[in-house]
Design a protein around this nucleic acid. Sequence first.
DNA 1: AGCTCTTCCTGAAAGC
DNA 2: TGCTTTCAGGAAGAGC
Length: 270
Amino acid sequence: MPELPEVEIVTRALSRKLKGRSILEHRVHHPGVLLHDPHAGLGGPLRRFERGERHGKYMVLKFSSEQRLVVHLRMTGAFYFRDSDTPLQPHTHVEFQLDTGEWLAYRDPRRFGRIWWLSPNSSTNPLADLGPDALRLSQPEWVARISERSRMMKPLLLDQAVIAGLGNIYVDELLHRSRIHPQRAADSIPAARLGEMWSACRELLRLAIRNGGSSIRSFVDTDGILGNYQNFHLVYAREGEPCTTCGTLIKRIVVAQRGTWICPRCQRRR
DNA sequence: AGCTCTTCCTGAAAGC
DNA sequence: TGCTTTCAGGAAGAGC
């Protein structure tokens, strides 16, 4: 499932492959996945791709015609490129034809993902409620956003309005690295430890990006290449395996309705 | 404010 | 073996 590192991988791949390209036409195979601003209508053509940006788990593809595509892959969204004579992959919902004749296709078996086609005068902004990106906020900002909340650490870190980009995998990995129990109240953790956690978070996310992200179930980049970082997970989906720090068996619990993996010895509740 | 539950969806895995 | 049920989860919304 794509979280910050995986979205970063896809953003980089699309930025590279779309550079300077224009989109001539698009096809919708399944309505509801591609959303247009109801007030701005369908914007003009997507002329000359300039760059892709990432905010949390959102990707923004910017064109010089001032149109932009905002993408959230959710669980199973993925892009691939195809020639007009190669068949569609199953669950392809939207396609964009480039000026090279090639098609940029979006597939998403579970159809949770969304693509917003926005123009400068669009009133909708899917990014409006996002907190700062997990790799772009300062250490003091990180500490400030977490420290005075009474919520449990895990749901707090998963909340995209607090910090954008972390999902179930990287929250579990981060809490383990920081030796913090997912159900601990945020305001019970000393600021110094939260400061260390900021560093651990940056290190974790950068390492995951360097390894192509985590391919759990279905994540692939735009060339169908699997990430590698799932092989380095220390707790996520590793129930019954020994903790690499202390050898205690990893335990699966449920926190905020999410499967959660911890080392019961390294991550004490209090 | 923050918790829990529900909805959206399909494919993989578990259960029988 | 093959059918049926459960589970996975990001985000939004409801209800408390």
